[in-house]
Amino acid sequence: MSAVATVPVRRGVTPKVTRGLIGVAVLLILAESVSRLGIIPGNILPPMSRVLLDTAGLIVDPEFLHDVGSTLTAWAIGLGIAILVAVPLGLVLGSFRIAYEASSAVVEFMRPIPSVALIPLAILVFGQGTDMKIALVVYASLWPIFFNTVYGVRDVDPVAKETARTFRLSRVGILARVSLPYAAPLAATGVRISAAIALIVTISAELLAGSASGIGSYILRISSGGGDTSLVFAGTIVAGLLGMLINFVLVAIERKIFAWKKEGVA
């Protein structure tokens, strides 16, 4: 054996974050140079330093915060309704094969319809306001949560269900006390996927419908009539940051609640 001890390389969280930040910094510097050197005109790609300043300004601008609030309200209500509908539905349809097969034709038809394609219909039915946004978010968010819940329920260990049966739990009792907690981690993953989709749909709807308020409406207002490109960028960046923040928070919650799931990784 060689006497040389190899020092294990630790790939912790910190180096990963550092590398990520380096990537972002390089991109920003590149964009800044391209703009400053006039390779791309400033009215198309404003200098990143200005965009970042505008972003910082936006985050504390009460008018813009009102738009953020409007977007998040529609997002949260829509996602909440989707969870309340999709989880029980997935739980029941996932548990009873016959019910699932009966519903699958309808599901297979509805699922591929892109929610963005439904925006004109939603505007016709619900108008340009919050109701329209909520309706679209519900529709778009329903599927990932529903399918993940169905898969989760199908994954329930049959021995766990038999155990509950030997303790004389009713069918509903087994559904609520065994199948639901078993399926919860997968359903939560569905919620996280839907949360991202829901944000996209909300902002798209605001843009296309010309809603009175929302991040999408803000971007539309600023960009129309030869608006300030830097502010349009700033609005877009905030939308992106919001998506990241939501994902980060949901992942943290999942880790905390589903710590017991560790064994399942093996």
């Binding site: 766990a160 155990t163 907690p181």
Partner: peptide, 15 residues
């Protein structure tokens, strides 16, 4: 009546 299964892993509720 109570039953103890061979598959304790499946029989215990992991959460």
């Amino acid at each position: 009546l109570a039953m103890v299964f061979q598959d304790y892993r499946g029989s215990l509720f992991p959460w």
